[in-house]
Amino acid sequence: MSTTAQRLSVGWVAVFGVLTIGVGFTALLVADVSELLTLTGTFLTLVGLFALVQGVRYTLSGKETDRAHITLGDPEQRKAAPSPGSALTDDVAVIVAGGRSAANRRRKLRTKLRALAVQSLVARRGLSEQNALSKVDTREWPTDRLAVTFLSNTPYPPRDRVRAVLFRQSLDRIAIDRTVTEIETLWNEDEQQQLADRRTK
C-alpha cells in the first residue's frame, strides 16, 4: 500500500481532485468559463450516481465501526474486596447458565458439597465418617428430593423437570440451594439444641 508508485498515483489523483475543485470555483465566479464548460444532464447524473454509490459505501462501512476509547475505571472508588463466597457464587451462575465449563464446575461443586455434608454430619450429628458417607450414599440423608438427587448425581425426577420447564426455573439452582439449606439445618438445629441444653443446665 505504501509503495512509491502507489503513493505517486494517489498523489496524482489528489491533484486531479484539487484541480477539479479549482475549475469549479472559477466556473462559479467567472460566467465565461462556466459557459465554456456547460455540462450535459447525463454527466450531471453520472456524477450524482458516482457520489451516491460512494456515499452508500462509506456510510455502510461507517455504520460498522465501533468507537475506540480508553477505559478509565473508577479510581475514586475503594478497591472492592470479594465476599468469602464470591467465587462459589460465580460457579453457580456458570452452572445455571450452562457455559462451556459448566459440567466441570458442577462436578467440582458437587464434590465440595458432598464433602461438606459428610463433614457436617460427622461434626454435628456425631456420626463416624463411614456412617456419614453411607448415609449420603444410600440417599438416607438429606430428605429433600432435589438435594439428594444433586448430591448423588442422578437425573432429576421427571415431574421436577416438567415443572422446571413450565416455570422456566433452573433445577440445578434449586437443587444446590436446597442442598445448602439442608447442610445449614444441620448446623442450626445443633446450635438450637446446644442453646436448649445450656438453658436446662
Binding site: V47, G48, L49, A51, G55, V56, Y58, G62
Partner: peptide, 19 residues
C-alpha cells in the same frame, strides 16, 4: 472513529441533491 460515516452521509445528501 467518532466521526465515522460523516463523508458517506455527506456524499449521500449531495448525490440526492445532484440527482
Amino acid at each position: 472513529k467518532r466521526w465515522a460515516g460523516i463523508e458517506g452521509l455527506t456524499l449521500l445528501v449531495v448525490a440526492i441533491g445532484v440527482l
